[in-house]
Amino acid sequence: MPSPQSPPAGDRQVGADITHQHGTRTTLTITVCHACSARWFPPREVCSTCASDDVENIESEPQGVVYASTVVRVAPPGFQAPFVLAYIDISGVRVLAHSPSSDQALTPDTPVRLTVAPIARTAEGQLVSYAVEPLDGRDDTTTPTTGETR
């Protein structure tokens, strides 16, 4: 995997070591268990379903689909309301991420792409993280769908 990019001085990046940027294409590290086929995000050294250490880290697809979303209007310490959160189903795992380009909750089943973006302001700079943005209608890549639930 290519090494993650460092954010500018003063900024802090959440999940920097598990986020990968290839030009405009962003992916996440996920873990696949070869013993039971469970998938994990964030990655794990041992499968938390079957405790096997026969696990492998792979890169996710760059796109996923919204399971559910909300606009948080009462921010916890360190964040500035309002901000949009969404659960994204991507490559067999569910990931919670901001959608910084949105001002309302994303409708379930909306296709999204992974990005890296500021999600909060801090005293020193910005808090940066993997995030998502809705795909525009012209995108001709295959739209993933939510699969079987566990």
Partner: peptide, 29 residues
Amino acid sequence: GGTLPLTTNDIEIEQGMVMPAAYAMRAQR
């Protein structure tokens, strides 16, 4: 005041997760 503090720092709490947001997404779905 405000939302109950979530003191167990994890990958979702780092994203600004709060209990009302978790239930709001269940509600939306």
